[in-house]
Amino acid sequence: MRIVVCVKEVLDPDAVNNYAVAGRLEIGDDGKTLTQTAIPRLMNGFDEQAIEAALRLRDAGADFTLAVVSAGESPEKLLKHAAALGADEVVAIQVDPGSLDYHLVAALISAQIEASGGADVVLCGRQASDDDQGVVPALIAERLDMSLVTIAKAVELEGTTLRITRVTPDGDERVETACPAVVTITNELGDPRYPTAAAKVKARRVKPTTVTPDDLKLDADDLAPRVSVTRQFVPEVQGNCEMLQGDSPAALADALIEKLRADSII
């Protein structure tokens, strides 16, 4: 059995948020990219959890080859982390991130999967914390004609059947599907593990297999961008909060409840 986990490098969303909250998030002269060069780049959190989901399958006794693939400018750092965690193969698809549209990412990853022995399970994050799109896994499922299960918090494998717990607005749902399938992982899965120090040292020597779009022989239709970013901007927040005053918690509480009653909100 072969499991492929797709990991994306993103700007640390907490750092981006801190800049935003401080009113210091800025877009560069190209009108598209954030100027903050101090923001660390790291593995999308949901993708770390997708690796964790694979490792838990292995802990539970499943026997498979684990491949971790990333398309981007220089995903080596992420891939070393994946290798230290126990990935058997790590693959970097080298592309200019500026030109990446979601169909192209999905086409590249799908072609790489097909060229390297296929996959019984493809694990992805529920969404990338930069674009929040959450479309690449569905596009991969369509290209590879696999079933799709989204927002999974627990994944079990029994033979070639996947038993999955999904988080839904109405509570948890248990589903089953036959491999091959694409499954997207959500944060409710729980904390991902850290590699051991020894594994990290060993992983330093790992060289990812590097492929280019040319190696993957995509056709013109696959390569044609369908979505392009023309602009990015920081939305304005209005900010006209009335700060309630009072000399005790009781007075403040009364002031608020009075306001809400006066406005007929409660």
Partner: peptide, 17 residues
């Protein structure tokens, strides 16, 4: 125009096809 970074930014996408 779509929300990105959880709402910290908006991205304007031109869609073709």
């Amino acid at each position: 125009t779509a929300s990105a970074y959880g709402g910290d930014t908006r991205v304007v996408y031109e869609v073709s096809g």
